[in-house]
Write a protein that binds this DNA or RNA. Structure first.
Length: 533
RNA sequence: GGGCCGCUAGCUCAGUCGGUAGAGCAACGCCCUUUUAAGGCGUGGGUCUCGCGUUCGAACCGCGAGCGGCUCACCA
């Protein structure tokens, strides 16, 4: 359409090339066009910034400031600070993006941003000469430069690099968001995370913390002789959790495959094989709703330890999470959305039945049969909270629904809820003396589940019965019932030692430790619909 | 999937009663050798998310679509 406007007048002599240029110019903002022109001019002068291959940094911004302050302190004699301009660090080279430009006639100040923060540059005409200084003044916010010079403190007290030489390393062809308000549109922040990282330092900090948390978790497990393994993401059967999978296809095998929803059944095979302590930290994929707590692909760690049980997993969980908290935040107390959370061991432990009772729900201890439980459910008006028709519900389903209704939201401080109904725990060992309950717990923080752990069911005959029950559930219309994995059952027949296992949602742990409101704030590139434009 | 809300210059936002759009930052030109949301003078910049409709006339009213946010449902 823009093309038509440009082509419409009497110009039948316009060459195609010019038309293209006109069309291109119309599609670009004025500012983007000017930057491209500046780039073209540099290239014509043999100063193509994109031809530069390397720049050796001696420092980053934050370290430079620390070093300079230390040097000032060393130069302080009898409490008297050194005279302004007498302390210097010579021969530094820093690189980064120009974030603001205070442009003077013969001297300019530039804020340079690197990985660790910002440092001011002081540039004057005497050091660079008139020609080079004029070139500096054509730089734009968003350009990436490398500078060499010395560090000093300005009259106003800002630690700065006095620039002796400046090299343009990359020309930014698009203007950056506004320097004061920055980038605020959440959609653009998620879609164009690189801009978010450039403009919002707290976002950079969040993702640095995420890295520290992940490293801390590996460090904790590795030091306890766990082996990190990688299990398949492409699976012929998606099992090990109650969730709908993503479906994909192998061309070579002409086979429908699923993206994994859990790593459990493969990790237990590793235990059967004798690895004793294993974990897999990686992405799971669940084809479900998206909201502030759920992203379709999310990071999960599952760990399995032979010769221990769910109580061993509680200790592991407390140790692991508090270690991550210390590494990320410096302590075990964390403020999440205004509420102080204490992650130091020991966490509160309570049975599911007691959690229901303590939070104003019914007492299930006298409920013996499914029939009694259904009566109770009708009396309490719980039927709407149940996932299937009341007549298909077992006592376990109803207890679980009561837990979710009465107790879950009140579990603010880290709490282990123990003893889950067997009906909803098909991979879990029963409690000795009570076949209706299992040795399982989930950890809750701020009303949200952060982990799930149990004494692993290792009786292959009982395991097959449980899968048969799940198959019946599927018949009744539950498309999230656990799928039978025949080879997994075969592995149990080879023999798995008594084992404790646990899964922890990494994104959710990170959310608590960095005080993120939405899961999208801790995932660099969250799942988004394609942009319509 | 339901409900509510949003989408205007590169960015952050105004925009009255329906009369063809404005500020700050950014850009461009000039001045300024220690500034830091630098300052002063001047200039340019718009597919008002898209489509259809109502109207003499739509950023504004109606219908539909797209994308997003919040929320409920679903879901660990």
């Amino acid at each position: 359409m823009a093309k038509d406007q440009n082509a419409a007048p009497q110009s039948n002599e316009a060459a195609p090339v010019e038309l293209d240029e006109a069309a291109q110019a119309a599609a670009l903002s004025e500012q983007a066009r000017i930057r491209r022109e500046k780039l073209a001019r540099l290239q014509a002068e043999g100063r193509d910034p994109f031809a530069v291959v390397r720049f050796d940094q001696t420092h980053h911004s934050a370290g430079l400031k620390i070093d300079f302050e230390a040097r000032e302190k060393a130069a302080t004699v009898d409490g008297v600070a050194p005279a302004s301009g007498t302390v210097k660090i010579e021969g530094v080279a820093v690189a980064g993006r120009i974030m603001s430009f205070r442009d003077g006639g013969k001297a300019s100040f530039v804020d340079l941003q690197d990985r660790d923060g910002r440092i001011q540059l002081y540039i004057n005409i005497d050091d660079l000469g008139a020609e080079e200084y004029a070139r500096v003044k054509t730089l734009d916010r968003g350009d990436i430069v490398g500078v060499e010079g010395f560090v000093f403190r300005t009259r106003r007290g800002e630690i700065s690099v006095h620039v002796k030489k400046l090299t343009l390393l990359t020309k930014g062809l698009e203007p950056l968001p506004e320097k004061y308000h920055g980038l605020q549109d959440t959609e653009v922040r998620y879609r164009r995370r690189y801009l978010d990282l450039v403009m919002n330092p707290e976002v950079m900090e969040t993702f640095k913390k995420r890295t520290r948390i992940v490293s801390a978790i590996r460090e904790y497990l590795d030091s306890r002789e766990f082996i990190e393994v990688e299990t398949p993401i492409l699976a012929t059967i998606a099992s090990g959790a109650a969730a709908r999978p993503f479906v994909t296809k192998s061309n070579a095998l002409n086979l429908q495959l699923y993206l994994r929803i859990a790593t459990e059944l493969y990790l237990k095979r590793c235990i059967v094989g004798g690895m004793e302590r294993v974990y897999d930290m990686g992405k799971n994929f669940r084809n479900e709703g998206i909201d502030i707590r759920h992203n379709p692909e999310f990071t999960m760690i599952e760990m399995y330890q032979a010769y221990t049980d769910y109580k061993g997993m509680m200790e592991l969980c407390e140790g692991l999470v508090s270690h991550a908290a210390v590494k990320a935040t410096g302590g075990t107390k964390v403020t999440y959305q205004g509420t102080e959370l204490e992650f130091a061991a020991p966490w509160k432990r309570i049975t599911m039945m007691d959690a229901v009772k303590e939070n104003g729900g019914p007492d299930f201890s006298g409920v013996k049969t499914d029939e009694d439980a259904r009566k109770l459910a009708s009396q309490l008006g719980l039927t709407e909270d149940l996932k299937k028709k009341l007549k298909d519900c077992t006592k376990g389903d109803i207890l679980n629904a009561a837990f979710e209704k009465y107790a879950e939201k009140n579990l603010i401080q880290p709490t282990f809820v123990c003893d889950y109904p067997t009906d909803i725990s098909p991979l879990t060992k029963q409690k000795p003396g009570d076949a209706s309950m299992t040795e399982r717990f989930e950890g809750f923080v701020y009303g949200r589940e952060i982990c799930n752990a149990y004494s692993e069911l290792n009786d292959p005959i009982v395991q097959r019965e449980r899968f048969a029950q799940q198959a019946q559930e599927r018949e009744l219309g539950d498309d999230e019932a656990y799928a039978l994995d025949e080879d997994f059952c075969a592995s149990l027949e080879v023999g798995m030692p008594p084992t404790g296992g646990m899964g922890i949602g990494i994104d959710r742990i990170v959310m608590f430790l960095v005080d993120a409101y939405s899961i999208r704030d801790v995932i660099l590139f969250p799942t988004m619909k394609p942009d319509a434009r």
